[in-house]
């Protein structure tokens, strides 16, 4: 028959088993040595990676070529050329006038017309047009008179 004393013993046994054996040793030289080694190795790896990154960064910066942005000089050669041509033409004309090689003022050329006979189509008498004096086609400033006789 299980008594209450036995049950207590069993419970105490179980509780002691959960607590485990208390570690009375403060330092574990081997474990901490390897922990230190692992941390050091990690730091070395991280440092190496960081140094390599820095090296690559600056090496790439060095390899980059300097971009030279050259400002274009605004020189309108075509405009200059055409302007010089215009003034060269003016100079020629100027010299031509001074050299007396220029023609006189252009005069409009008069055109002559030949009279055309027109046959009368009406039975009524057509008034005769008499121009006195005869017209001069080149404008000489002389007024022209015309009279209409029946």
């Amino acid at each position: 028959m299980i008594e209450s004393k036995d049950i207590k013993k069993m419970v105490q046994h179980i509780l002691r088993r959960d607590k485990g054996i208390a570690d009375t040793q403060i330092m574990h030289p081997t474990r901490e040595w390897f922990t230190g080694l692992a941390i050091t190795l990690g730091m070395v790896v991280l440092g190496s990676w960081f140094c390599y990154y820095l090296y690559s960064f600056h090496h790439n910066e060095m390899k980059k070529e300097v971009v030279i942005i050259e400002q274009a000089v605004p020189y309108q050669a075509a405009t200059v050329k055409s302007a010089l041509e215009v003034f060269a033409t003016k100079q020629e004309k100027y010299n031509e006038i001074l050299g007396g090689g220029m023609n006189d003022i252009p005069v409009s050329v008069a055109t002559t017309t030949t009279p055309v006979e027109v046959s009368a189509t009406s039975t009524e008498e057509i008034p005769e047009l008499i121009v006195d004096p005869a017209p001069i086609f080149e404008d000489d400033g002389t007024p022209i008179e015309a009279t209409l006789t029946p």
Partner: peptide, 25 residues
């Protein structure tokens, strides 16, 4: 040193550009 190098490089680039512009002019 990296920042100094970048600044120097930029300055050299500007000077080279100015020199090129000067030669063009």
């Amino acid at each position: 040193q990296g920042v100094r190098y970048a600044e120097s490089k930029k300055l050299i680039g500007e000077q080279t550009a100015k020199e090129a512009s000067y030669n063009t002019v």
